[in-house]
């Protein structure tokens, strides 16, 4: 066995896994603050990348300006989703809300297809293609940047959920009715969680868009995001980070060895297998809250 190749696959897998964590983090943020599993996170990620391009194109703005502007726009879109699509559903069965997020996913993908078509557009961040050397290992620079962004966001949200506002959001996720009963504005909390998640989606959309171009396939990051979020426990930001690393390593090494045997295309199979196994073996993931049953 070639240990250098293995290590290189593992390290690059960990880095790209952290970039999956960015997508997963958006899912976790919403779940942790309102117990809604958001199936539209992949579509929002893609939408944000298109919005960055649209702002850069329309205002002739440089990317360093277009990205924060797009984050502001996505913040507003997140708030709008709560207001238009979710407010009436608060307190309704979770299946209806889940279907609504699926509807949002389809809507966003169809809308971007209509507006911007299907051809891939480049989103150059100016990150050099030249690999970074770590001893004998070659690292992908874009992945390194993405991994660092993921870690910074993790630190931000780790502290956020210990602030007063963060605690209120966790309370909402626990019990909507009890939150209303003590005067918490559940609607505003849910809106904030969608807005934050949409901003995180922008970070993920830009980084992934710069790597693989901006087209409909960006929305398929949902699969990786869901797999990482479920493995990490749905409501744990730290879990999303560790699960991202784990999933990235397994995906990259397993497919690195499987692909030559089966002729390629085993990446998604590995991810899907992890998703299914997690749900079967440990439904609350590595670090998720367990439902408390007192007797």
């Amino acid at each position: 066995m070639d240990w250098t190749l293995f290590a290189e696959l593992a390290v690059n897998g960990a880095l790209s896994g952290l970039m999956y964590s960015l997508v997963a983090m958006g899912i976790v943020l919403i779940y942790k603050s309102s117990s809604v599993p958001n199936l539209a996170q992949g579509a929002l990620t893609m939408l944000s990348a298109y919005i960055v391009l649209a702002i850069a194109g329309a205002l002739k703005a440089p990317l360093w300006l277009a990205i924060p502007l797009a984050m502001a726009v996505m913040f507003g879109i997140g708030m709008g989703i709560e207001r238009v699509a979710l407010r009436r559903l608060a307190g309704r069965p979770i299946i209806m809300i889940l279907m609504m997020t699926l509807g949002l996913d389809i809507f966003v993908r169809a809308a971007t297809m209509t507006l911007w078509g299907g051809t891939a557009r480049p989103l150059p961040l100016g990150i050099s293609d030249a690999p970074l050397f770590l001893g004998p290992l070659l690292l992908n620079r874009a992945y390194v940047v993405g991994a660092l962004v993921a870690l910074v966001l993790f630190a931000v949200f780790f502290f956020f959920f210990r602030t007063r506002r963060g605690i209120v959001l966790r309370a909402i996720a626990d019990d909507y009715t009890a939150s209303w009963s003590v005067g918490i504005s559940v609607e505003r909390g849910v809106a904030l969680s969608w807005a934050m998640s949409s901003v995180v989606a922008t970070a993920a959309g830009v980084l992934w868009g710069s790597i693989q171009g901006v087209d409909q396939s960006l929305s398929q990051l949902l699969l990786k995001g869901i797999a990482v979020a479920v493995l990490g426990g749905m409501d744990s930001v730290g879990g999303a980070i560790l699960a991202g690393i784990l999933l990235g390593v397994i995906e990259n090494t397993a497919s690195g060895f499987l692909d030559p045997l089966v002729g390629g295309g085993s990446r998604d199979l590995v991810v899907a297998a992890i998703l299914v196994l997690t749900i079967l073996v440990r439904p609350h993931g590595l670090f998720g809250r367990e439902d408390i049953e007192r007797i």
Partner: peptide
């Protein structure tokens, strides 16, 4: 006006400290 719900309905995944903080939002 405050309503203590039937069946207690505390925020189960929060600590008592956090339960009290969450309710001070208003």
């Amino acid at each position: 006006i405050v309503h203590v719900l039937e069946g207690r309905r505390v925020f189960e995944h929060l600590t008592p400290d956090e339960n009290l903080v969450a309710a001070s939002a208003v």
